[in-house]
Design a protein around this nucleic acid. Structure first.
Lengths: 247, 247
DNA sequence: CTCGTCAGATGGTCATGACAATCTGACAGC
DNA sequence: GCTGTCAGATTGTCATGACCATCTGACGAG
């Protein structure tokens, strides 16, 4: 159960913080299976000595991995590698990224793209005053040949400059991030209802078929509302996967 | 924009860590509106001096609030209170707690409660070998007079001792926590489908009505799978509210 | 008037040292 | 044999000191 020395030499000239170098290396050792679940790490003092670091720095590296659910610490006992399972973090990703990660080859058709005065609901969600304008984007997303989702998104024009042709190629979130906006937190609401006639037509479903609805407000790291989205998905083709942690 | 001194004296005899005392007090000042969004805090050195603390301790308090989304720090600039919005953390709570928090007066009817050999799906989800047994619980939850949800849960018998009458009064998660198990992380999958006849009858809906489905596997802090749940909700009455953060 | 440079302010990282709280296991006493 | 106590191990908390990285704004050159 005990552990020797990880074959790691920290690079003090690197701009990457030392604690982060150590954390990444440890994470790699765990993910690769070199440190299987249940492995007991040496104590903090010894680890710090082995790497030529101070204890606070070593602690910080371990803390980072504890927060991410890879390690467990117990006072008086020690630090252990946790059972693997699904330890993916909660992600603020877009459907486009999700699909591409799953190898599904997403395709997007832009139904409409315009600049307009926000509706009351949108203005309220984004905290916009009078005179503001938003991009209103309506897209139909396919996975392979099958229509999957109708997405309506609203982004204040003053925050980012958008173009229709870019949206067809990359996800909305990537464009927002590229504009230097730091997406940090989002509130989502997931519900369900039956398909209306127009929606059913677009999605190749029958009227009354079960749909998933999702509305989301995304905020950047200063607390500004950046995007409001109202999406519907074919329940027969899509589920939301998420990981929750206690705080 | 600048700030004076918070009227706070830390209690060094308390078992509550100093950084946490400070964090809680700051949080209270922010939540109460005494520090409205945009308020700029004094720099770390000054704050630490004012409270008679060291800078690392003061930093840790601020760090705690930054992680929770209440503050933003920018190097070279300072620390500010973030726009309020919904800054609730991602929670691993139960429907029972959610409803009670919303003042809805939940009621639970136990449809069945037994100890059985787990099905293949359940054994796989919980990582159980042969010979293990689980509690199989099937409950119907009401909000006021309306049926809301059918919940099927499975918990290994070796982890906790459950009784039917307790379940009617309190949430399953509270019972698990009371048994000294430290719920830490859960993976959920949310989807939708049409109601089948038997389900529709129990939920007072028509067959074919849209339902939300949720399956969840919850793990404790050592990575052990503790609970598997498969729930269905009336989409007309329930939505999942959640907050996502980037990591 | 515009742009680049530079100094000050502020958070980010790291080291060293110390003591407290908690868990485990061994040992003594009953 | 059982139980309670105590010592050792290990993480948790806190203080002090130092230097680095980044941002803002003022000032001066053009």
């Amino acid at each position: 159960m005990a552990e020797g020395i990880p074959q790691l030499v920290v690079d003090r000239t690197s701009p990457v913080p030392l604690y982060f170098q150590v954390a990444q290396h440890l994470e790699q050792l765990i993910e690769s299976g070199a440190y299987p679940p249940g492995t007991r790490l040496d104590n903090e003092i010894m680890l710090a000595d082995q790497l030529g670091l101070s204890r606070p720095t070593m602690r910080r590296a371990i803390e980072y991995l504890v927060d991410r659910g890879l390690l467990v610490r117990k006072r008086g006992v020690g630090t252990q590698v946790v059972q693997p399972k699904v330890r993916r973090p909660v992600e603020l990703s877009s459907l486009y990224d999700d699909l591409r990660a799953a190898g599904k080859e997403p395709r997007t058709e832009i139904l409409s793209f315009e600049v307009q005065q926000p509706s009351e609901v949108v203005a309220e969600a984004l905290g916009l005053g009078g005179g503001s304008e938003v991009y209103a984007i309506r897209r139909l997303r396919y996975t392979g040949d099958e229509p999957l989702s109708i997405m309506s998104n609203f982004v204040p024009t003053e925050l980012v400059r958008l173009q229709a042709d870019e949206l067809a190629e990359t996800g909305l979130y990537a464009l927002i991030r590229n504009a230097g906006i730091n997406l940090k937190i989002a509130t989502q609401s997931i519900g369900g209802r039956a398909a209306r006639a127009a929606e059913a037509r677009l999605l190749a479903e029958s009227p009354g078929a079960p749909l998933l609805t999702m509305t989301r407000i995304a905020y950047d790291d200063t607390g500004r509302a950046v995007e409001y989205g109202s999406h519907i998905y074919r329940a027969s083709l899509y589920t939301f996967e998420l990981t929750l942690t206690t705080t």
